[in-house]
Design a binder for these strands. Structure first.
Length: 267
DNA sequence: CTATTTGTTTATCC
DNA sequence: AGGATAAACAAATA
């Protein structure tokens, strides 16, 4: 589930604990989320460090401890971040837990284990963080940069392309469906069929969906309005808010796409 | 028992 | 070479 806005929400679950000292690290290193951690004991150096800053780029999170210990987290399909004040609260899938000096705990839960934990020590941000692409809402994501990418992939279907994290960091399956629905573009349209005006529209809708989803979800994970595709797309016989007709669902590029055939008429 | 899942990486084929 | 496609990962849920 976690896409741009949900990941930002999780960042804000942990960030209130900034400037607090870590007293103990519990890591279930046998779990698959730790597959990239080299030295099995390296996470232990977080003991005694102070949680200093929280960052997000796309779906990636990075938490800095002191000024030199970098903890990278990716939520995968089912990852969640929690903070607990109750000492006896149990977390069945909490495979990484940071105990804080004030009694709170920072928890990374991930039942399905598609998530990932990274760790590096050094005064500068590690490559796995520094080399990530800039945010869609940053100044460097321009129409020109997006279009240059589209020009190189004329035969590609538009929906799977929107899921490419190197170009559209943070966009996941529901955001891609929402973007295409708002743009009235069918998900199976090939890039070459999208004319320049429609590409301009697509570009602004991409940014709009990023802004809207952050506004609704990143701050308190509120329920999106029924005027979005979001609330309808997983329901059987879900209804398009525009046409009131039944939405269609089909696998496109290996992922389920949901669209409104009589609304997304650009094809 | 079968099919499904809002993510990413790797292998394989063209 | 580079793009498209499928499988793999793991576990819950319907």
């Amino acid at each position: 589930m976690p896409e741009l806005a949900e990941v930002e929400y999780f960042k804000r679950v942990w960030s209130p604990a900034e400037n607090t000292k870590v007293t103990e690290v519990m890591a279930r290193l046998d779990k698959r989320i730790f597959r990239e951690i080299k030295g099995a004991q390296s996470l232990n150096c977080l003991n005694g460090s102070t949680f200093s800053q929280s960052f997000r780029k796309g779906k990636q999170l990075c938490f800095l401890f002191d000024q030199d210990k970098w903890l990278g987290l990716h939520m995968g399909m089912t990852g969640k971040l929690k903070i607990s004040e109750e000492p006896d609260e149990a977390f069945k899938y909490g495979y990484l837990i940071l105990f804080l000096e004030d009694g709170r705990r920072l928890i990374f839960e991930d039942p399905r284990l598609f998530g990932k934990v990274l760790f590096s020590q050094g005064s500068r941000a590690p490559d796995w963080w520094a080399k990530l692409p800039d945010e869609i809402l940053s100044d460097s994501f321009t129409f020109q940069s997006m279009n240059t990418f589209l020009e190189r992939r004329p035969r590609s279907l538009i929906k799977p392309l929107l899921l490419e994290q190197s170009v559209f960091p943070g966009i996941g399956n529901w955001m891609a469906d929402e973007i295409l629905w708002r743009s009235q573009i069918a998900p199976f349209v090939r890039v070459a069929e999208i004319d320049p005006d429609k590409r301009e529209e697509l570009y602004s809708v991409i940014r709009e969906v990023c802004v809207d989803s952050l506004e609704v979800i990143a701050d308190g994970w509120k329920k999106p309005p029924n005027s979005w595709l979001f609330n309808h797309r997983w329901k059987d016989n879900g209804i398009c808010p525009k046409t009131k007709q039944v939405l269609k669902r089909e696998k496109i590029g290996g992922r389920t796409a949901c669209w409104s055939p009589d609304w997304q008429v650009y094809r």
